[in-house]
Design a protein around this nucleic acid. Sequence first.
DNA 1: CGTCCTCTTGATTCCCTTCAATATGAGTGG
DNA 2: CCACTCATATTGAAGGGAATCAAGAGGACG
Lengths: 241, 241
Amino acid sequence: MGNRFIDKLHGFSPLSPDEVKVLAKATANPRKFARRIDLIREGDRPGPVFVVLEGWACRYKILPNGTRQVLAYLMPGDSCDLHIGLLAEMDHSIQAITPALVATVDRVEMDIILDSNRGIAKAMYLSQLIDEGTMRAWITSMGRRSSLERVSHLMCELYMRARNIGLIDALDRLALPLSQALLADSLGMTTVHLNRVLKVLRESGAMTIERGVLHIEDPEKLIRMAGFDENYLHRRLRQVA
Amino acid sequence: MGNRFIDKLHGFSPLSPDEVKVLAKATANPRKFARRIDLIREGDRPGPVFVVLEGWACRYKILPNGTRQVLAYLMPGDSCDLHIGLLAEMDHSIQAITPALVATVDRVEMDIILDSNRGIAKAMYLSQLIDEGTMRAWITSMGRRSSLERVSHLMCELYMRARNIGLIDALDRLALPLSQALLADSLGMTTVHLNRVLKVLRESGAMTIERGVLHIEDPEKLIRMAGFDENYLHRRLRQVA
DNA sequence: CGTCCTCTTGATTCCCTTCAATATGAGTGG
DNA sequence: CCACTCATATTGAAGGGAATCAAGAGGACG
């Protein structure tokens, strides 16, 4: 397998062979993180930019009362905020969900790369814009969608994002390493209720999650149930330099 | 009054006199928007970068079922995404809440400004990081805070942000031009319930909203009720170049 | 093969929505 | 300046969706 980060950026903005080399070099020495290990914690001083090459991770926040809110999922190829190093401290934590291969790019090095490679810069900015759009979609879900819509919407999103990076298998299924507890904590519901919603979705014939495998049986139906509009994932990009 | 945009950025990263001049020139010809007028709509092709000089605006999204979700409030000095021009279309709309004075900075011009003024670039990136942190705080609120906590938390946030830009009057009050319908649409609740929560807050002696004026009577109490931690607004900035 | 984690299901409670009516206030035009 | 209108705010009553509490089933793993 290649470098999923490069693949992703390449999809946003055609990279020159030189730029590919630069990115390959910058992510050449990834570190392994075991499941459930924090890459960085709320309150920590931000360090290098994280680039997830393999595996899944999530951003999350723990509240004073002990509950957790998942803020975003990071899939292979995803990276954390570009300019994060400007902040004095993290306002959330990032944790590996599966064993993960994560490259770290030094802040200064990243700045140099961005300054001298317009293609990379453009792709990174696009990537960040999409992450922001995704956050807005999450806010929308939490605020104005029913729990059934919310769950279906997240599944649509994860499926689309996974498809974009080639994570869907030949049988049209996605290995989804997310426990119901984690999903519940990202959707603002309890595990009990999430479980019931998943049952409804299963019995409606729209989709199933079995043993960590998501299968969308009736895409049309699921999209309809979710009110899903993938515009926020911005696959259609502006064709200007 | 000066230029609130420059004031804000200056607070993030000391700007050289030259940089101040550049910003003043770039925002020299603002446009007036009446209340309830969209600056840009979901589906529109993004144009220039918007900079709110005076007045309030909000980002929002309308769902298929007709409900609305407010995604963020823009106060004087706030701007929308820097690289927004890279996208083919907007995934949300932006609307003036009050009569507003909004400067538009051409995308190419903005790129040039960023490239040739490190101080401005740094301040803008910081600003964007804070906006992202704010979105994460909203997700957290919606997902894991009770309605009482949610309302108090938003009031704490708006108060702090307003204070940072000098919008609090001598009597420690804030002119808050947000209807209960708007507030409800940002907090994921109904106007009826929001109204009841505001009543509880009023009767508890923590805060009041009367005729568009927010007064926090017992800051300690409100902060405690909200579980508010202002770290996500990143006032303490890293002291490195 | 026992332990722990995750998933599943039932019963009860309650927070919030929905529906409905009234009050208050701002803006407009005669 | 006052009557009229429309938007906004307030309050009550009833119903529903999701949380909570509780218990058991299914899998993964040493």
